[in-house]
Design a protein around this nucleic acid. Sequence first.
DNA 1: CTAGGGTTAG
Length: 616
Amino acid sequence: MFQQRSNLFTGPPRMSTPVSVAGRPPRWVSRRRIFEQNLSELHKCRNLAHVKKFFAQILKSDRHLDPQMAAKLVSAFSLCHQMGLAVKVFAQFDEPNTHLYNMLIRAYVKNSQASKAFETFWRMQINGVPADNFTYPFLLKGCSGESCLHLVQMIHTHVEKFGFFADIFVPNSLIDTYYKCGQLGISAAKKLFSVMEERDTVSWNTMISGLARYGELAEARRLFDEMPMRDTISWNAILDGYVKAGDMNAAFQLFEKMPERNVVSWSTMVSGYTKVGEIDMARMMFEMMPVKSVVPWTIIISGYAQKGLAKEAIMLYDQMEEAGVIIDYGTVISILAACAESGLLGLGQKVCTSIQRTGLKCTTSVLNALIDMYAKCGRSDEALRIFNRMPEKDAVSWNIIIHGLAAHGYAGKALELFDRMKQDNFEPDEVTFIGVLCACTHGGFVDRGLDYFLEMQKAYGIVPKIEHYGCLVDLLGRGGRLKEALDLIHSMPMEPNAIIWGTLLGACRVHDDSNTTEVLGRLIVLDNYDSGNFSTLSNICSAARDWDSAASVRLQMRSSGIQKPSGVSSIDVDDEVHEFTAFDMSHTESNDIYKIVDTIRMDLGETLLGHGSRHQ
DNA sequence: CTAGGGTTAG
């Protein structure tokens, strides 16, 4: 089963002979000394050129057969994402020792190949090489998600059997990993913590942040109050809990009480205020920060961008660059996502330029974020250009481009790409089909959409989620097949939510189907308190001149305390965002704007009624 | 081994 060991670098192993330095000029000797000094740091070296240079030297002196040296090489190669080379170094050994196995396991995990890490672990077991207290934390780093729970439990059993709980790192990383395994991991984490004989600050902090992440704030707070020694991490963990729960008042109170605050504490507050929409408070916190890193800059810029406040976002972005802050993956992905959401093409292009200027590595994720930004900002051409040229697409790339094209009316092109995706052997997933159904909706291909919905289940075994039913309701609804849409809602295996009803309501409004509206009117008041739906419903009633019903819906809204914020449309012209509400006359150029809107309406009317091109 | 920002979805 195991690969034949081969000596790929130097031919058959030779006896190691120390390189003599005698008789060399002093300069060489000193270089040699520097080489040896740097060699001791080799396992931390992230520069591939340097690592290769060292590697050449090591090969020359046959020291790659020294397990200690080989372990360093494996580690260095993994940092440079050269798993092929790391494996080759490892494969030089007939009987790798525990340390070498550990380094390979860690290498796989760091390069997101957790399954290979576990394969290595099994191989270690079969070959009778004992694991040690380092092996388990490395393996655990590769576990996350519900599917990993059984693996973590298996590791837990191993650890118990071989008595590695003595090293506090082991139970600590077990607790941490249990929390990464979803709801089911929580009780396991609690149980382990309760039986631990010794706990250090990390153990307590891991528990607190885990509980806070899952919203068990009271429990987290109890541990926080109970723990013997609190450090800044403990305070930050509980602070993060309040922020995640959206309770900025509690967060602020705690923040004020903190004995010391670091960049993370301040950033957590900035991010919290951003998330609850209090961008001015976020800005104040940001300005008050004594030290800023790239993270808070990213948070505040993304915050403005998300709100569509292009001018402020761009000003801050320029300030950040002037301050010499170096952008990283997080910055790029976070800001581009915000630009995509709000349609801020200007800022998105700035980020694109910065990527090129700083030479930030264009990973698939970075390119995906760029493509999504261009597509959502209406630049399908640029999105497609990058997509076509990207060296390694993943399923997400395909999903983004398909949905991007679909949402902007290029239904045919989107479906064409869906076919190409399958030809290129990418397995469509549940997100892909959202884009595909969206394409059918926008292209008016109702029956074809229904076929895809079946294909999704039959050919790919995807169980439709409520989002898919939402697409389907939209597809049928916009296609005027309201009865089928309503039947679909009734036959869904899950409870319809406000989004589903809203979609159908929207269709009723367009197609003026008062029968369905009646059914909906009854259903919607039962259990879906969505302000948008109430207001659509009342609009439908008004449009049907059923003033009594319209009034009763409005009344019901008021009595249930629902307020509908007015809908706005916005347009970004030279990074100035212009907002419009219905019957809005506040814009300085309102008259001209409405004239153009009327022209467009007439053009649309002609097209919809099939009068053909007016150039005929 | 623990703390802040991280791409796709009506």
